[in-house]
Design a protein around this nucleic acid. Structure first.
Lengths: 233, 233
DNA sequence: CGGCGGATTGATGAACTTCAACGGTTGTGG
DNA sequence: CCACAACCGTTGAAGTTCATCAATCCGCCG
C-alpha cells in the first residue's frame, strides 16, 4: 500500500536497527534505493518457497514469521518488531524463503533491493560484523528453543511464550503484555493445539499467575511464571 | 592428547572445510598459530557455560554437540565431522558456550586461537561471506527442526534422524548408516526417551524399513523411510 | 565366573490431541 | 436496524501417544 518513503536517519526504529552501524553516507545510499510500504493486518509480505528479492526492515507494527508444518499447521518462529530485519536469512543463504511473514497489525516496512543490500554489506565491515554476531546469537536462541520443544511440557513452554511476549512487548512499569494475539497464535508459538493453550492459560489464571481479559494478558506473578517456565535466565 | 600439528593445506578434510576459501598465505598464518589435538572417545572439548578461547576445526572422528535440558537430559543439536567448525557460534556472538562438545570416537581437532581467527576473518572477505552464508543456512535448518520437534510424532522424527545419519554418514553404494550410535544418542537427537526410540526402531524393523544388528543400522527401504519422516526434501 | 552397562520388553498413568458442541462477538449485506 | 454468517474462545469427552518405572536379558571385560 502507498506509503511515503521514510528516511533511515529519521526512522523511529533507527536506534534499534542494525542499520545504525552504517555511516551517514551509506544510509543515504540505502534511502536512495529503498521503498517504504504499508501493510494491513493479515497481509503477507513474503511467502515460503518464493525467491527473496531484497531485505525488509520493519518500521512500524509487528510481523509473524512462520512455516507450514507437515499437516499445514503453522509454526510461528518469531515475531518481528520495529528495527528488525526480515528475509535476510534466505537472501544471504541464497535460498528461497523457508518461512512466510504476515503483518499482525497495520504495519510499515521498508524494502532494500538485494544488490543494494549486498553492496552495503560489503562496504560496511561494521554492519557485516554486527549482522554476523546477531546471526550467531539467533542460532543460540534457536538451539534453546529446540531443546525446550523437545524436553519441556506444554505448560512450561506456554509460560516461556508469555515471558517472551512480555520481554519483547511488555511496557515499562506495566504488568500487561503489550501485544494482543489470538489464542491460536499463542498456541502456534508454543507448539501446541489452540484448545490446550486455552486450557492452560485458564489454569495459570486460576493459579493467580496471570489474569485474562479477552486478548489482554496481565502478568500477576512474574517470579512464579519464571519458575513454571524453568528458565535460568 | 599429543598430536603432531596438521597443515591445513595437507588436511584430509580441507576440501570440505570453510578454510578452503582462504588464500594460501592465510592458511600458513593459521598453521603458524594453531595446535592440533587428539581426543579419546568420551572426551569433552568444551563445556556449556565456559568462555570460548578460539575455534575448533574437526580433522578426524565425530563430535556430538549437545545442551543439557532442564532435567539434565541432553539434547543433541548436531554431529560434527571432519571439516566442520566447532565453537564459532559462541566465539562470534561473544558469549559463553551454550552447548558442550564431546568426541564420539578417537578424534582429532585443530584449535585456532580467538584473535587469530578474528584477524583471518577480517582479512578474508571470502571466508567471511561463506561463513555468514553457512550461518544463515544453519538457521534455516534450525527452524525446520524446531517445526518438526513441535509438530511431528516421535516416529516421524526418528525416521528423520535416521535419514540425517544416513545422509551425513552413509557410505556410497551402501545402505548401512556409516556411524554407530548408542540408542540413547539416537533418542537424544530425536528428542525422546531411550525406551521409546528402541521400541520404534524395532517397529521400523518389523515393518521391513530397516534392519538392525546391534548398533549397525541398515536402511532396507529408503523411500518408505522418507515417507514416514514426511520430509519434502 | 561375576559384574556392569547398554538394549529390550511390559505395565501403568499422565499429558495432550482431536472431535464436537456451544456461547459470544463482530461484521456485513439486505 | 436486523438477521445471519463467520470467527474466536471455551468446555467436555474420548482416545492416543509417550514417558516412566521396573524387571530382565545380553555381550563383554576384568
Amino acid at each position: 500500500m502507498r506509503q511515503d518513503k521514510i528516511d533511515c536517519s529519521l526512522c523511529n526504529a533507527h536506534a534499534s536497527s542494525l542499520f545504525r552501524f552504517c555511516g551517514h553516507q551509506t544510509l543515504e545510499l540505502i534511502d536512495a534505493h529503498k521503498s517504504s510500504n504499508a501493510y494491513r493486518k493479515g497481509q503477507i509480505i513474503f511467502f515460503e518457497g518464493n525467491q527473496p528479492l531484497g531485505l525488509f526492515c520493519v518500521n512500524k507494527g509487528v510481523f509473524k514469521i512462520y512455516k507450514a508444518g507437515p499437516d499445514g499447521k503453522e509454526q510461528i518462529l518469531y515475531l518481528a518488531k520495529p528495527g528488525d530485519f526480515l528475509g535476510y536469512r534466505a537472501l544471504i543463504a541464497d535460498e528461497p524463503y523457508t518461512a512466510s511473514a504476515e503483518a499482525l497489525d497495520e504495519s510499515v516496512a521498508c524494502f532494500v533491493p538485494r544488490d543494494e543490500f549486498i553492496k552495503v554489506l560489503e562496504a560496511q565491515p561494521d554492519l557485516s560484523r554486527k549482522l554476523m554476531q546477531s546471526l550467531c546469537h539467533e542460532l543460540g536462541i534457536a538451539a534453546d528453543r529446540l531443546t525446550s520443544m523437545a524436553q519441556k511440557t506444554v505448560r512450561e513452554r506456554l509460560a516461556e511464550t508469555l515471558l517472551l511476549l512480555y520481554d519483547s512487548f511488555g511496557k515499562e512499569n506495566e504488568v500487561q503484555i503489550g501485544i494482543q494475539l489470538p489464542r491460536e497464535d499463542i498456541a502456534n508459538i508454543t507448539g501446541t493445539s489452540t484448545e490446550t493453550a486455552i486450557r492452560l492459560l485458564s489454569e495459570l489464571k486460576s493459579d493467580g499467575v496471570i489474569s485474562l481479559q479477552g486478548k489482554r494478558i496481565h502478568i500477576q506473578d512474574l517470579p512464579a511464571l519464571r519458575r513454571i517456565a524453568r528458565t535460568y535466565a
